[in-house]
Amino acid sequence: SHLVLVEPGEIFASPDLDLQDGDLRILTTLCELINRELLVTIGWAKHVPGFSVLSLVDQMALLQSAWMEILVLGIVYRSLPMNDELAVAENFLLGREQCRSSGLLNLHSVLLQLVRKYRKTKVDKEEFVTLKAMALANSDSSSIENMESVLHLQDRLHEALQDYEREQHSEDPHRSGKLLMTLPLLRQTANEAVRTFCQIRLEGRIPMHKLFLEMLDAK
């Protein structure tokens, strides 16, 4: 319930309309959006119970490893009611053809795979926000100083998920396991997204804000 309370509000893209080239406009809008989402995500992380008590170094390590998984989960959750479109933002839907022409086709297909998986599971908002916090706590960063406190955070979140499932989804005793078993595909999808944006950065055609570049460096 606390995580639902601190869940950030809707986010809107701000396309640069005098960019003539449709593909450049998509990628530029996407990169600007991701930079704003990163600011929101860092602010959100501070409200995840148990995160702010970690050392600053460990907070950075978890965010540097998990940020793309957190962003991907947001896009996937927003896209659940869509029909093969990605709701990157409330006012920014990406269909297959737009992704193909802007070089994002592979990312589109792996993201839709994850959308389908969560749609089949009928993941609800409480589960989505808990999984997002778990992605943060379970980011397998190699530069954690105090592993005990990170494991403790993971255990608290796992407990919250189990309590929730026991109360709200008693019909399926394996539901928390089903949700945890989506995390590997989430990790794989996020890695594909990081690869895609590293490539976009290498091509150097799209302006990218410093925070976005810094977080890409960290991956």
């Binding site: 600011l39 860092i42 602010g43 501070k46 600053l56 907070q59 950075m60 965010l63 540097q64 410093k210 925070l211 810094e214 977080m215 460096d217 960290a218």
Partner: peptide, 15 residues
């Protein structure tokens, strides 16, 4: 630390 200046600053200052 130096390389990740912005993240460090964002986490350090309050809300």
């Amino acid at each position: 630390q130096e390389k990740h200046r912005i993240l460090h600053k964002l986490l350090q200052n309050g809300n």
